[in-house]
Amino acid sequence: MIRELRKLFNITGMLRRFIILTLLRCPFDALYTAVQALFLKHAFDAVNNAQTSSLFITCILFGVGNIILFLYNGTVWTVYTAFVTNWTAVLRRKLFRHIGSLSLRQIEMRTVGEWITRLNSDLHAATAMLNQPIHIPHAVVSLVNAVVSSVILASADMMMFSLVILFAVPHMLISRLIVAKPMTRLATDVQEAAAENASDMNAIIVCAAEALIYDAQSFLLRRFEESSLNIRRKSMRLQHRRALVNSLIPLMGMSGYLAALLVGGSRIAGGAMAFGSLTAVLQSRGRMLVSLMMFINSMINIKTALAGVRRVCDTMDIRPEDRDVA
């Protein structure tokens, strides 16, 4: 995955700027998690101890902290969006120019549908890694956030942290091995089916005169329908895998939550834990799991988009024949 991304950034440049902007985006979620956990802990402690002034100060500080965080986040996202728009334009321009520099023989080696797919959906998939939600930026952010949440949870209550990890790790492993791993291959199958479908669509236009004279429109439409169904079949395989991750959420998430609640409840009853601490622990657990879910989904999306990245890189790797002669 790293190799493909490096190749993609070799085409466009601007890797350093991307890393800096992505890292600048990271502190928001982590700090937001920490602020929320602190707020809940102090707010509930104040409520427990009936300290109105302490609750008022906690609320004021939480409000100010939120304003600062959102201003920071908005600024970073604005700069990042401008960067990604520029990056996408550079990649698109370079791909168009490269295809334009190929010889007719090289162009004719692939079908019209193949070129259309490479210029549209492959390019779209490649740029989606940077400009679509739940892709690289969210993967980095969610990973940092998961680490921060884990540290907060572990420092607050090691036993509860172990309990959460016990339910989170199998979910991560299943998602990684069964869903994320085959995603690139499944997405490549979809892109290839899309290229075939685009060729069949092209034939309806290019062969229009012959189709009219020989009454072959239904024949061409049938072929187009078959290749459209093939895309759907391939896409369904991909979506089935995605659905598997979603089905794991209630299984692992709810059972983990109930276990934490039962253990926490019995510890409160035994006087070993305050209600405010349990609330903060559950909040940290929630943030940690949300981050892990986002990370898993981001990885699945990145693996899917890698099919497009590979095909874009493959196109850029074709050496123009005329340049060789020169």
Binding site: T111, A203, V206, C207, A209, E210, A216, F219, L220
Partner: peptide
């Protein structure tokens, strides 16, 4: 009809 630049179906 037969043309010089024949177009065949894929």
């Amino acid at each position: 009809m037969v043309m010089q630049n024949t177009v065949l179906f894929p």
